[in-house]
Design a binder for these strands. Sequence first.
DNA 1: CTGTTAGCGCCTTCAC
DNA 2: GTGAAGGCGCTAACAG
Lengths: 378, 378
Amino acid sequence: VSGRAVLTLYDVASAAGVSIATVSRVMHEQPGVRPATRQRVLDVIEELGYVPDGAAQSMARHRKEVIGLVTAENPNADLEQEGLHYVEEVLRGVEFVLSRLDWSVLFSIVRHDVDSDVRRQLQKITAKVDGLLIMDGILAADQLERLAARVPVVVPAGPSQGTCADVITVENYSGMAVLTRHLLKVHGYRRLFYVDGPPEVSDAWERRRAFEETVAKYPGAAITGVFPGGFETAGGRQAVRRILGSWPGEPGPRPDLPDVIVCANDKMAIGAIRELQSAGVSIPADVAVSGFDDIFTGSIIAPPLTTVRQPTRLLGERACTMLLERIADPSLAPRVVRLSAELLIRQSCGCPPATRPPRSTAPQPALVPQPATATPPR
Amino acid sequence: VSGRAVLTLYDVASAAGVSIATVSRVMHEQPGVRPATRQRVLDVIEELGYVPDGAAQSMARHRKEVIGLVTAENPNADLEQEGLHYVEEVLRGVEFVLSRLDWSVLFSIVRHDVDSDVRRQLQKITAKVDGLLIMDGILAADQLERLAARVPVVVPAGPSQGTCADVITVENYSGMAVLTRHLLKVHGYRRLFYVDGPPEVSDAWERRRAFEETVAKYPGAAITGVFPGGFETAGGRQAVRRILGSWPGEPGPRPDLPDVIVCANDKMAIGAIRELQSAGVSIPADVAVSGFDDIFTGSIIAPPLTTVRQPTRLLGERACTMLLERIADPSLAPRVVRLSAELLIRQSCGCPPATRPPRSTAPQPALVPQPATATPPR
DNA sequence: CTGTTAGCGCCTTCAC
DNA sequence: GTGAAGGCGCTAACAG
């Protein structure tokens, strides 16, 4: 508790009666040290509790062995407990890949409300890392481009086109298309209502576009309305209130319900379900509901939510791997990788409960265009 | 995209026709630079896109401006989507405090399965930070003590006694005691069943002890059983199956149900509720259920879950502040801080729906023993 | 006001 | 096998 002066290589060296070079060799398990010497040094390190200084190491070897994961504050997120759930899942994937290389992840949330601008916050982070994972929607395309020119950058969940940085994304389009086709073909729904996400998020408009284009291909099917739900549960509730209009929830003529309410994410779907239920509307008998994401609550709620599962954690893992590859070789051409999303049929769409085991333990979804596997650093 | 050689102070200095000291002064907004010169340097920095090297800065100023948050892999967590939710909430609190000082957080999950031992993983992290936040249950008391002697350490959610490192914890005991009293006094329940958490987690045994001691004080009240649930939803389901025994779920004599099933956390309570419902047992009419934590799903499920809300994010904020204080002055005596938890009455305990606004927007719960406020670094 | 200089702790050739 | 010495990029006195 006393020896607050931090130990250096020199302390260890002199305590062991060797030079710092020898201690360094021992630390890194390099050859060329007599076993006896090695052991002596090891003992001293152990006794003193020496831990090398990461900053000095980074400096000498020009590598920090740290990558940064940057996300933006969602102003609404504080109200909803499930707020950053998505990024945190990505974070776990990133951490997983990094941990077995002894690298680390710096997690950072940029805030627009603070006086210091986003650029300054990003600088501070950039200074401490070898590369950056920047979630979509934080930087405009041109700013991203400038940044990517100076430091390795990968954008997880980014727009699937038009960036010059590496992008990895989930198949929002095909996921929503498959779900919509299920609703259209298997259930024969013809009057569909859509609850949309925020316009600035590329996930949201990819899903919406998939929905609209798929419905358009089915003669007789129609979109009875689109409500801007903003990705939070409240948005789902409001959408339902709008649909129900001033219906008092009592017996009597009920307003025209759509066959199904398609929500751009699970949270809104859950809000919609709760609101429908409290109005006495039965799901899926009176109206079906679907979501997107596969959050925990959706599997617990009654009826269980039909949705599209995103391989979020895998997204983090792959993004991290890509970044590592780019750090190892910055001259790589920009790449775009798409991960497929999987339709998860439960009961809110009108399907009967599965008799088989409810969730497949299948291996991770396949990477759509398999990229050349470069060797990660170290 | 071409200039891959990273820029240094010297590049900027020579491009601006000044010395590196001047550039450094400009970077740090220090006085003593003629406005014209300052502007010229600023322009060059902007043009070149110079970002200082964090490693070199850390080295020169003996401070990395990074703290580490270390948690352990929960082997069961992968199965449950809501896995690391708790730590992630802590992480947000930490990040929040750090971000406005321009510090960063290194997030790390130690794994016991990997060949490299925990000590080695911790070393790697320690090398990169100024201080460590180590979640409870990762290190044995003696190892923690050794570590804390060498580097500033705070243990969030740690055992409320017997450590020599700084500890910050939530009032599990009083939280569970208040909840239990509510069940006993307001509802008059007399036959209580407990679903316990894992024995190695101090949160779990503090809650259990509070439950047992509170029940013991009420004449006529009895604990009809304790089931080891392990903090996952499956544990709650199993507990209910155990209680129901071989009851087929059909009309006829039903096994003796307890008045209430008290669960050590929300996930198990949710598992219990689902299992009860699928057996046709009505909640809270036939049996009441309570949880602990206040996760999102508990507020959505029907009936809404009565629980104890932990100020998890606040825990992270306070832990971080404490750590910053200790980094600023390592000679501080070890401190223990307890945050109070708040009873959150919803309907699963048998209470009627609130007529008031459902959730209070009250300010953050008070810090119980207000510690002396030392000045954080910088 | 501005420039020069000495480290910070470690890695890494290069001699011995 | 082992040691000596230069340098990584930056900060912070200390001179001018």
